[in-house]
Amino acid sequence: MVGGFSDYHVTSTERKISSQVAEDKAAAGFKSLSDNELIDALKEGYEDAFFEIVNRYQNPIVNYLYRILRDYEEAVDLAQETFVRIYFAVERYRNDYSFSTYIYRIATNLAISELRRRKRQKLLSLTGLFKREEQEQEEFDLRDSAPSADAKILQKEMKERIASAIYSLPEKYRLPIILCDIEGKSYEEVAKILNLGLGTTKSRISRARGLLREKLKDYFGDERNRL
């Protein structure tokens, strides 16, 4: 599977013709193709089309999953799992909605499963817990005991604080706000990804922002200008 067109086995005249088409496509480059066209190419057996999709979505998906889970390794693993699922379920993919929505939905489902698993088995690693507590403590300490710290450190501290505040949000508020404000998805897209109504999505995002403002009110007024 590692190869691309070279591994695409030609067994008949038809295949030979399509391989010619594939070569043409390869010559044109997959980069110019839309997501759905790339999926069609993958359905025809062009694995390079799949890796073009991977190139396009790997960073947003890893970022999205990282913001949900706050565990980079886990986020990378789940992102890879997302692509594996897309690869093996490509025949089942329909062009009813955009590929972006499709891939985010898969990633979201995997993330939710992981969060539930964590909740159920209480598998939050002890190191992760301590780290978070330490970080929180550190953030408090830093703020109190570092009036002379430079702007960069404060900026980093503030980002950590915001990330922690997002992670502390309940799941139903965390997912829409990440999709909307971090991934830059529209309300409609968020609604489709999370399989919610548009009104529900909007209210949840608004509520999430309100909760964040509550959590960051001590810092909001003073620190926001430094970011």
Binding site: Q58, I61, V62, R67, V76, K159, I162, C180, R209, L227
Partner: peptide
């Protein structure tokens, strides 16, 4: 709300590791 949204959107984007495709 807009300010919060802007604040969140300024969070740095986490990137996939360089060996992401290889591992995939």
């Amino acid at each position: 709300e807009r300010e919060i949204s802007q604040l969140i959107s300024r969070l740095e984007k986490v990137k996939a590791p360089s060996d992401f495709t290889f591992k995939l």
